[in-house]
């Protein structure tokens, strides 16, 4: 699904990613571990072009999204992202946070379809009957889109047991609640893959569990996930592949069993001995 080919990223003179090659398939749960400052976040943020790579390619469904000519916003709809610090929209209620992007994006598509139809109708005026172009079918309306997004948001909230928080502002939620809302905000776009950057690092220890449980549930449902994490237990249990990144390179990758059970790279051995 995602092909990363010789990905490089420099900030000024500092090369942070030094050529990363990796392939992510549908249903993969890939955990990325590595020391602080090794480029894990940078790698993850390059995947949806939050950072523009300075070299290499990222092929998502056959399209190189590092190309400046592609409309990255379209592709990002299919790549959810969950941040360490949640980044819920502070000026929106919980349910507005979840509905905002789906409603906006669908309304935009609707507007474009209407515009296309208007153009076709106009051009048809000058065409012979047999050459008239047919209109794009429009099966929805703004109200319909909003209603469906609202229902979807509510059922997502119900799933995480926070339906009574629908109309509160994020500032009143606990860290664990915020992160779970952030995850379903990403889910509301029906993404094909979700990128997680240390989703539990900013949480109090007693809230880590609830977030990891939600992520495990998503993994069971077959969601493709790429997760930068320091939770080795989680990586071992949930991932089907683990990557070790150090100094901007993948030094080792493999199934959790061989990765943790029989690490080969000396730096990985050293790293694991420190964190386990």
């Amino acid at each position: 699904m995602i092909d990363v080919i010789n990905l490089q990223k420099s900030f000024g003179d500092v090369q942070v990613l030094k050529g990363i090659d990796v392939q992510i398939d549908k249903g993969d749960i890939m955990c990325i571990i590595g020391p602080s400052g090794s480029g894990k976040s940078t790698f993850l943020r390059c995947l949806n072009c939050m950072e523009d790579p300075t070299g290499g390619q990222i092929i998502f469904h056959g399209v190189d999204i590092t190309d400046f000519k592609v409309n990255i916003n379209i592709h990002r709809r299919k790549m959810g992202m969950v941040f360490q610090h949640f980044n819920l929209f502070n000026n929106k209620t919980v349910i507005q946070n979840i509905m905002l992007a789906p409603v906006f994006v669908q309304c935009q598509d609707l507007k474009n379809a209407k515009r296309t139809n208007a153009r076709i109708t106009f051009l048809n005026l000058f065409k012979k009957a047999d050459k008239k172009q047919s209109l794009v079918p429009i099966t929805t309306s703004k109200a319909q889109i909003k209603k469906e997004a609202h229902q979807n948001a509510l059922s997502l909230l119900k799933r995480i047991g926070l339906e009574d928080k629908a109309d509160v502002y994020p500032s009143t939620l606990s860290g664990g609640q915020k992160q779970r809302v952030a995850i379903i905000r990403a889910l509301a776009m029906n993404p094909e893959v979700i990128l997680f950057d240390e989703p539990t690092s900013a949480l109090d220890p007693e809230m880590v569990g609830e977030v990891l449980d939600l992520m495990k549930a998503l993994a069971k449902e077959g969601m493709t996930m790429i997760i930068v994490t320091h939770e080795m237990g989680f990586a071992r249990e949930v991932a089907n592949r683990v990557l070790f990144i150090d100094e901007g390179q993948i030094l080792e990758s493999g199934s959790p069993a061989e990765f943790f059970g029989n690490p080969k790279n000396p730096r990985l051995k050293e790293f694991l001995s420190k964190v386990l």
Partner: peptide, 14 residues
Amino acid sequence: DTGQMEAGRAVGLG
């Protein structure tokens, strides 16, 4: 917070 802009961009808003 710059995270607000990032979160918006990450869900596909311009």
